[in-house]
């Protein structure tokens, strides 16, 4: 058996005296489940005898990060008890899904179409060709800034233990554009490391060093994309900040 970096980072703490009055089920770590329907499949999870709905298969425009069989997911968010169940599950909304990096071969539950389960709505994207709607549209670029240019801050979010991925360009393109438009002199990049307290009391922290790795990766990306005249100041805060998804981030300041 190999040592799993994340499990190693579980700073076990079973004794949480001050639980919230009515502890919700979230956040938790569980195996994702695929529940197929006559249209697109749903992603659900089961926890303490209850089923929760995470989202449906769509495309790169999906509002949530769809899970991967073979890996557990960290689910953060809140249960929307007023929403009708979807695919048999209580709706978690907003929902943040992080795919845990280590392999969990036991997460292999793919449930075929069940006559009692169908989507209560038309999926935006059928399992075949789209009806013509593009998965990603490019927003109109913001109006070019006028001098005197101001220092501007940007944030790049991450999933738990996540690094740069297919979603990162969405957050980095505006940074690049602003740096180009203002001929940035200085680029300050600071990486952060997050930690999440699960509902069962377990404390799950990202591995030490991820804050720096994140910051350095972002610096390399901006440099590689052509911001090569600026001075880079790269720093990291490796103290695990307890809280939600917002703590897993890189902050960038563009100084014209």
């Amino acid at each position: 058996m190999r040592l799993l970096p994340v499990s190693a980072a579980v700073l076990a703490s079973a004794s949480f005296a001050a639980q919230a009055a009515e502890p919700g089920p979230l956040p938790f770590v569980a195996c994702p489940i695929v529940q197929d329907t006559p249209t697109v499949p749903c992603w659900i999870v089961e926890r303490d005898g209850e089923t929760y709905y995470l989202g449906i298969q769509s495309d790169v425009s999906a509002p949530f990060n769809p899970p991967s069989l073979g890996h557990k997911v960290l689910v953060e968010g809140g249960v929307d008890r007023s929403a009708p169940r979807i695919c048999g599950g209580l709706v978690i909304d907003p929902v943040t899904v992080s795919i845990m990096p280590e392999a969990s071969p036991e997460c292999d539950d793919l449930r075929m179409v069940n006559p009692h389960i169908s989507l209560p709505f038309e999926p935006p994207r059928p399992p075949g060709p789209s009806m013509g709607r593009l998965a990603f549209t490019y927003p109109d670029p913001p109006a070019a800034p006028q001098p005197p240019f101001e220092t501007k801050s940007f944030t790049v979010p991450y999933e738990f233990e996540g690094m740069v991925g297919f979603k990162t360009p969405r957050f980095l393109n505006p940074v690049l554009l602003y740096a180009q438009q203002t001929n940035a002199r200085r680029v300050e990049i600071r990486g952060y490391r997050g930690a999440t307290k699960l509902a069962d009391g377990t404390l799950l922290a990202e591995h030490e060093g991820i804050a720096r790795a994140r910051a350095e990766e972002i610096a390399a990306m901006l440099l590689g994309a052509g911001i090569d005249q600026a001075t880079y100041v790269v720093s990291a805060d490796e103290s695990p900040a307890l809280g939600g998804p917002d703590n897993r981030r890189v902050e960038i300041r563009i100084v014209p």
Partner: peptide
């Protein structure tokens, strides 16, 4: 791994 999920029922 690019936003579609694994597995994905597609063509």
């Amino acid at each position: 791994n690019v936003g579609l999920g694994n597995p994905v029922k597609r063509t």
